[in-house]
Design a protein around this nucleic acid. Structure first.
Lengths: 214, 214
DNA sequence: CGTTAGTTTGAGGCAGATCAACTTTGGTGG
DNA sequence: CCACCAAAGTTGATCTGCCTCAAACTAACG
């Protein structure tokens, strides 16, 4: 949920300027925060891509959410007043503004008009999380891979999503993603360009996921 | 997330009294709202139990959330300004207050101090949803069944959760739940009393889920 | 006490994981 | 610019956890 989509220009500027000094650039592979740490800020992405990853006991990683330009992250933990339940991993060079909120009370005191927007973001994120939870039990892996591909590619077309990342996003093994993609290429729905994946027929892909003949 | 846990007595009373005329009792099996409908209220449970169920295309049902005494529901859709993404199913006779908020703006206008609490609830629900999403890909079905059992039973000990409901909550088939429960009974961790399930050794059950020797 | 919804148990199948070996890609530094 | 190498991708073989289907049993409720 991009802030630009829901916040007016005035509030956006106010937010972006509230602690400009804290702006910072992270390189791909860096962690902005880690699971278990105490949240002390909300972050706003000026330009870049950040993934929220959860590591399970068995070492299995899950890609819970993905944040692009004008997205905020870190808000969930701050609002819930809980430690981070997942780590913020920089997927490609990213420019981040650290907003000047250190607790929910800070938001109430300094920018109460921001609260409804954060709530809306949380509400939409909750819907999406529950949708994916439901999909995991009701849809075949090929459908989930297609839907993840469409989602990730439509939002961040320039980023070269790896089979691993796609798998971590939809609950599939890397090899399973590879096999599915190979099949989809043979059907003429996508095209592999080096490691990148080009979507040839978005509409057909979407239908393919709905009907799911494996 | 019970309101009692996070809201002070004054605000709780204010909320509960804001539209007392709308109080109503639902019988088990009734739907308070259905997936796809437009949200026009937030509901507060005085006494009872409500499940949020999502029906997938294939007819597969998923139990997304469970609301007990002093829980609110319907808030997600109202805040996101989206139609309900799941249906509110009454699990046992439930007394509900319909709160007098018909849009996010209504809350801002009439009870702005309520916003932070709703946000906190959403934030905690999001964490839990993502935790369960992650569990679905990283844990074996027996672990998930145990964790669901502990969660559902600890919160609503009096309700006789069916194998089906437990399965819908953790992504398992009814038969799989039965088999797991039979095994757990043989291990002396639980006891079946009619259709009800008694937890004999909560601590041992918890460990059993962590280690998970199937 | 009959009926219905929930539970149990067994047999069999399969989607997708796992394991292993090999190939390709693309970035890096000589 | 090329050679190298680690990371990513591919492909095949095998395995297995859980689902599916079926059939009998049992609890609970009016």
């Amino acid at each position: 949920m991009s802030l630009r989509d829901i916040v007016d220009e005035k509030l956006y500027k106010k937010l972006a300027s509230c602690s400009l000094a804290q702006q910072r650039t992270y390189e791909a592979g860096e962690f902005i925060y880690r699971e278990g740490e105490k949240p002390e800020n909300i972050f706003l992405i000026v330009d870049g891509l950040v993934g929220l990853v959860n590591m399970s006991m068995g070492g299995q990683e899950t890609l819970l959410r993905v944040f692009g330009n004008d997205y905020i992250f870190g808000h969930r933990s701050l609002i819930a007043q809980e430690n981070y339940h997942a780590s913020a991993l920089v997927l490609r060079k990213t420019n981040v503004i650290t907003l000047c909120f250190h607790s929910p009370q800070d938001i109430i005191d300094n920018m109460p008009e921001f609260f409804p927007y954060i709530s809306m973001i949380l509400a939409k994120e909750l819907k999406y999380a529950e949708q994916r939870f439901s999909d995991l039990t009701s849809k075949k892996v090929t459908s989930r891979i297609i839907e993840s591909l469409l989602f990730l590619k439509s939002r961040y077309p320039d980023y070269k999503w790896t089979r691993r990342e796609i798998g971590e996003f939809c609950g599939a093994q890397t090899e399973t993603v590879t096999r599915a993609l190979t099949k989809l290429e043979k059907e003429g729905l996508i095209e592999k360009k080096g490691r990148d994946i080009l979507i040839v027929d978005e509409q057909a892909l979407f239908c393919r996921a709905e009907n799911c003949i494996d």
